[in-house]
């Protein structure tokens, strides 16, 4: 058996999964208890959990796809561990590539690693390169949150507006990227730039969400479905992308390149 996918590696993988599940459950149980003390209804908390779960399904499948991208070079387990904690595709690819290049391996992640020394160097670089947030969080987060708390205490309306503005700024970045973002002209990667399909996905999910918002407002019986509206709009938007990709002549399916 390939050493990169040995039972030892799987034990490490399941150990990390167990840690993440226990930590998440710990904070989840604490939050639910506090929510009950604050008088937040069980229905609201259940809807939040359900909506969050629905929202996570498609991106999680997409993360599995990134494990596949890296598995040809690194085996399946190390990318699985890395993408379960901290990581994302852009970081993991760059750090694996940087580690291999440092060892004079010019093929990088496009070829399978056969040497345990190279494999362990990649694991070290990927891990140490990614832990910076965990090093600084314990020192800065409380101070940061206390500062925010003081600002909120001075003017609650201003604080609420600023909080909404920060979310909107972030959303605008992704919406802008879906409209005018360009992909690398030298790399033949579908989806790295905006184009016909990204704009289709964006506009159709916007349209579905507006329709759901209108219907939920007009028909009281539908209010129970409010927490499904956003995830459902996302899935329907993805469905429209598939239809357009299937029926639109390929000449019209373009992506902006630089």
């Amino acid at each position: 058996m390939d050493f990169k996918s040995s039972s030892f590696m799987y034990i490490l993988g399941f150990g990390v999964v167990l840690f993440v599940l226990v930590q998440s459950t710990f904070f989840l149980v604490r939050a639910i208890k506090r929510g009950k003390e604050l008088g937040i209804s069980s229905q609201k908390m259940k809807s939040t959990a359900l909506q969050s779960a629905l929202f996570s399904i498609a991106p999680a499948i997409s993360i599995v796809a990134t494990v596949i991208v890296l598995s040809s070079a690194l085996g399946v387990v190390l990318p699985w561990i890395r993408l379960t904690v901290i990581g994302n595709l852009q970081y993991e690819t760059s750090s694996a590539q940087a580690a291999l290049n440092a060892m004079g391996n010019s093929a990088g992640i496009s070829a399978a690693i056969t040497s345990p020394e190279q494999f362990s160097t990649v694991a070290w670089v990927m891990t140490v390169g990614s832990v910076m947030p965990l090093v600084i969080l314990p020192f800065v987060l409380k101070k940061l949150q206390t500062g925010i708390g003081k600002a909120v205490g001075k003017d609650k309306v201003w604080a609420n507006l600023m909080s909404a503005a920060a979310f909107i700024g972030l959303i605008c970045a992704f919406i802008g990227r879906a409209i005018l973002g360009t992909g690398d002209k030298n790399a033949d990667i579908i989806g790295d730039g905006a184009g016909t399909l990204s704009i289709t996905g964006l506009l159709s999910s916007v349209a579905f969400m507006l329709i759901f918002t209108y219907l939920i407002k007009k028909i009281p019986k539908l209010q129970k479905l409010e927490s499904f509206a956003m995830p459902l709009s996302m899935f329907l938007g993805m469905g429209v992308v598939l239809l357009v990709n299937h029926f639109l002549p390929s000449a019209y399916i373009v992506e902006w390149r630089y």
Binding site: F55, A58, P59, I61, S62, A65, I171, F174, I175, R177, A178, I190, G191, A194, L197, S198, I199, T200, G201, L202, L203, S204, S205, V206, F208, M209, A229, M230, P231, S233, M234, F235, G237, M238, G239, V241, L242, N245
Partner: peptide, 13 residues
């Protein structure tokens, strides 16, 4: 193609 457009659909909604 749908998996490639998760982010536009997610942030559109």
């Amino acid at each position: 193609p749908a998996f490639q457009q998760i982010l536009p659909c997610l942030f559109g909604a």
